[in-house]
Design a binder for these strands. Sequence first.
DNA 1: CGACGTGTTGAAAGCTATCAAACTTAGTGG
DNA 2: CCACTAAGTTTGATAGCTTTCAACACGTCG
Lengths: 245, 245
Amino acid sequence: MTVTETHRPLTLLPAGSVACMTCGARSASVCNAVEERDLRLLEGAAEKIRIAPGAPFMVEGAPADCFFNITSGTARLVKLLPDGRRQVTGFADAGRFLGLAATERFGFGAEAIDAVTACRFSRKRLRGLIDDVPLLERRLLASASSELAAAQEQLLLLGRKTALERVASFLLERQAALPVCRGGDETVSLPMGRGDIADYLGLTIETISRTLGMLKTRGCIAVDKASEIRIRLPARMRALAAGED
Amino acid sequence: MTVTETHRPLTLLPAGSVACMTCGARSASVCNAVEERDLRLLEGAAEKIRIAPGAPFMVEGAPADCFFNITSGTARLVKLLPDGRRQVTGFADAGRFLGLAATERFGFGAEAIDAVTACRFSRKRLRGLIDDVPLLERRLLASASSELAAAQEQLLLLGRKTALERVASFLLERQAALPVCRGGDETVSLPMGRGDIADYLGLTIETISRTLGMLKTRGCIAVDKASEIRIRLPARMRALAAGED
DNA sequence: CGACGTGTTGAAAGCTATCAAACTTAGTGG
DNA sequence: CCACTAAGTTTGATAGCTTTCAACACGTCG
């Protein structure tokens, strides 16, 4: 899929001060390395921002002078080829920390899918925070390890799985990503469009659609709203995702 | 490619004591976080091992109770599907630290390609070492960030690049990986076989061979020994790798 | 109501995989 | 030293999965 869309000029809107105490994403993020009595340190180092659906807030190749912690919504992480081909390297939900870079520049871009709110830290301030809260570095390492494992799993998917296996894997992954989802555990909500899924799975929009249709025909899933899918045969799906058929 | 080979029973041979002072891989590894006067700490925490060509030394899914630091040779990192399909998630050269896992078990396996020597640390000893040398944690984080960036680049390759672009990217990556290679900067040595390259690039042995043949025909490379390739038109290769043609 | 973005469905083309065989290299033993 | 063997690599023909191109359906919104 090639990228042609133009996006809104307003990408980052200040949205009030940071309130870690009441932040729903804190327990799921690296911020939980900071004890409650030290939360003021955290609040002082960050600013809250709001990103409109579709808008980018990290640009691949731009100087990596800040970091983000998603507090609500979902973002897509993207890498581009010069001719416009796009790879979505991941989806970032609430609690995800973004921007750790070994180099001076971001290795990937990030764009809001639905309405996203996030905390932004400057590079310098994060450094200071790490010096004050050594545990933070340990959490960042754990977070990076976890992301690395996820990326390697995705390498296996992209390198060796069929379209059916990829789509089944994706749905299960999204199901697991959702924190105690409402409406029954079998419901998977998909804020991203088919194009995002296609670019995440190394396929095309049409193949995503066809494969979902096949899963529906087989009775593995039910597609209610295109953005809401129910997994009806979890065991069958797990077998498909692993290529055991 | 499916895996059928059986491997040698002897995978790990003690090979004398650890001598960090004279270790050629130290400067390129996380070990350089340890100052010279503290190297005895490092030596006490590790043991030197030797792995025969083809032999595995980390098994995917096995308890992650130890870590490795490659000191010479090259290893392949592999993930498997139940039916034997294989993805090589990376190649580990001298200086590479292996085994950081967010979970209790290794997310991938590692096998020696040529003769490999490495230092092995137990999980507990590494923890102690990190407590003694806080800088080590920072280096591990930098190392993980760097690996993550590499993995994301590989996601782009596997998801969106053509066979020609993948092979060109691979050769350039290998060239960059070599530390000041002898025999002219244009020579790339490939200790891994075509099967490993295929499983790394999400292709087949035949496609690797055909694509290398095409690059040779176009004058981009010269294939001397199948394990030794010279890049004759670096600019052209970089353009191919980025898909700019 | 019609335009538009998004998603679905259909037919044909293309790239890579699969199957098969020839070739090369390295190692072994006569 | 050379024949022999085995593994790895290259080359060729065919098949298959996914892409591409195209048309249609659906829902939203002006």
